[in-house]
Design a protein around this nucleic acid. Structure first.
Length: 256
DNA sequence: ATGGTAGAAACTCTA
């Protein structure tokens, strides 16, 4: 079973690239973030024509998460239960005995801002929810844009980023606590190229200079981690025309 | 030096 995650930065703008990626990689499921559209304008028909079912938690202009899948999901959950949030940042569903969650953690804007405080509160709610999800779903995969680089090696220039949003210690601690529930970082279960990132700013020629951060992650419950056979980043996408500022990340889980 | 670019939407916000 191949599962991917991709912050598409507008689904309608990125639909041609998404359809191309699905045709080339044929994932069983893909988690999307920043669809930036309401459910009413979600391109379900075009995706169905490409062979994918979809579930969406959308909103106008900002945010928006979805899961596309070869087979129909069940038990769809929109948002973090019992956490009041006007922003559409979570959707989860069951696919052939695997619980998949697509998450879009708040960016946080800048350390000390109101949006940063919201990000830290949001992480606490996510952690509490995922603790109960882990207890009820042994095969749980949480994929998405976490907007946090976990370690120095996940940042092109850790000294320059130290203390900045996406790499500040409170954010890294929040992600570490969440991982402490028992999740594995799928990317680090395998040898990876040095300076592997998943996001590069559109500005200042950041991609050309590989000035990136690894902030998109695939977290696996212990049972799924034990079945993981590969994980990678499709960096090639980021160099193409009309690319998202994020590259797709994918994991391959053994079916047996 | 607080820049630069992309997207949605509506003359500005978010990332």
């Amino acid at each position: 079973m191949k599962v991917a995650t991709w912050n598409v930065n507008s689904l309608r703008v990125r639909l041609p690239q998404l359809l191309g990626w699905l045709a080339a990689h044929s994932p069983d499921a893909i988690c999307l973030q920043e669809t930036k559209c309401e459910d009413a304008t979600f391109p379900a028909a075009e995706l169905a024509a490409a062979g994918y079912c979809s579930v969406h938690n959308g909103q106008r202009t900002y945010n928006g998460v979805a899961i596309l899948s070869r087979r129909q999901g069940s038990g769809v959950c929109r948002g973090i239960p019992r956490f009041a949030d006007e922003q559409s940042r979570v959707i989860a569903a069951d696919f052939d005995g695997v619980r998949i969650a697509s998450v879009y953690v708040p960016n946080g804007q800048s350390v000390g801002s109101e949006k940063y405080a919201y990000k830290l509160r949001w992480f606490e709610a996510l952690e509490a929810w995922l603790a109960s999800e882990l207890a009820s779903h042994p095969r749980l995969a949480v994929l998405g844009d976490f907007n946090v680089a976990p370690e120095d090696r996940d940042v092109h220039d850790p000294a320059a980023w130290e203390g900045n949003v996406l790499f500040s210690l409170p954010e890294r601690a929040a992600l570490a606590r969440l991982m402490g529930l028992g999740f594995a970082d799928g990317f680090r279960l395998f040898d990876q190229p040095e300076k592997s990132f998943t996001w590069w700013d559109y500005r200042m020629g950041a991609f050309r200079r590989n000035m990136g951060l690894r902030i998109d992650h695939a977290l696996l419950s212990p049972e799924l981690a034990g079945r993981l056979v590969a994980c990678g980043v499709d960096k090639a996408h980021r160099g193409r025309e009309k690319a998202s500022d994020h590259a797709p990340v994918w994991v391959e889980v053994s079916d047996s």
